[in-house]
Simulated assay, not measured.
Amino acid sequence: MLATPRMRRLVALPIASAAALAMVFTTGHSASAATTTTAAKSATSSKLSTLTAKQVAAKKKMRAKHRRAARIVSASRVAARQKGDPYRYGASGPGAFDCSGLTSYSFRKAGMKLPRTANSQYHRVRKIKKSNIRKGDLVFFGGSRKYHVGIYWGKGRILHAPYSGSRVKVERIWTRGWSAGTLRLRG
């Protein structure tokens, strides 16, 4: 193929101009049209990348919500690894636990702070309806003063350290007199 005068000039031009001329050859549009098209694409891209303050806040909240959910899953995994460990009053791991010791230990290992006792944990979490409970939420037992806590395990079961002489285990919730709390974020 013989080089035309137009092709010879293309070789001598800087790369940006060469791209514009290449567009002229392939599309039949002038270089100014190519530049205009590129500028329009850039402006559109700029508009898409510019978010309102409300959108930025919503994205931050969503990221925080996902981080919190991941920590709750992690706490559930930590607690599951404690199955079979003996119950010991006042113990908070890693070799033995009481009920609130298990929950505070598991959530602490996942990067979340929970107070030491069941009643204090109840006052720290956000209360939710029983119908909204999910795996990893906390189940509390007792009236105005909560005396026992476990981690909801799904299908009406909890993972907990039940009483002296027993071990950390999963079992069905045995009473209707319980309440639910969560460390999940609203929303």
Rank of each mutant, 00 (worst) to 15 (best):
T117V: 09
G156Y: 02
L51R: 15
S74H: 12
I133E: 02
I151Q: 03
A3G: 00
A79W: 01
S166V: 00
E171D: 11
T50F: 11
S17T: 11
F140P: 02
A53D: 13
G187Q: 09
A43R: 14
S30I: 04
F25P: 00
S100F: 07
S166G: 03
S120I: 00
R157S: 06
H29E: 14
Y89E: 03
V149A: 03
S106R: 02
A22V: 02
R77G: 07
G156F: 05
K155Y: 02
G177W: 04
R126V: 06
S74W: 10
S76K: 05
L51A: 14
E171Q: 10
G90R: 06
R108L: 10
K130P: 06
R67K: 15
P5K: 09
I15A: 11
S92I: 05
K130Q: 10
T182Y: 06
Q55I: 04
R134K: 13
R9W: 01
T44E: 14
T103W: 04
L51Y: 11
S106P: 07
L51N: 11
S144T: 10
Y163T: 08
R126Q: 07
L13D: 12
A16R: 08
K146E: 00
A96L: 06
R157K: 13
T52E: 11
K83I: 13
L185E: 04
A58W: 10
A22L: 12
R9I: 01
L51Q: 15
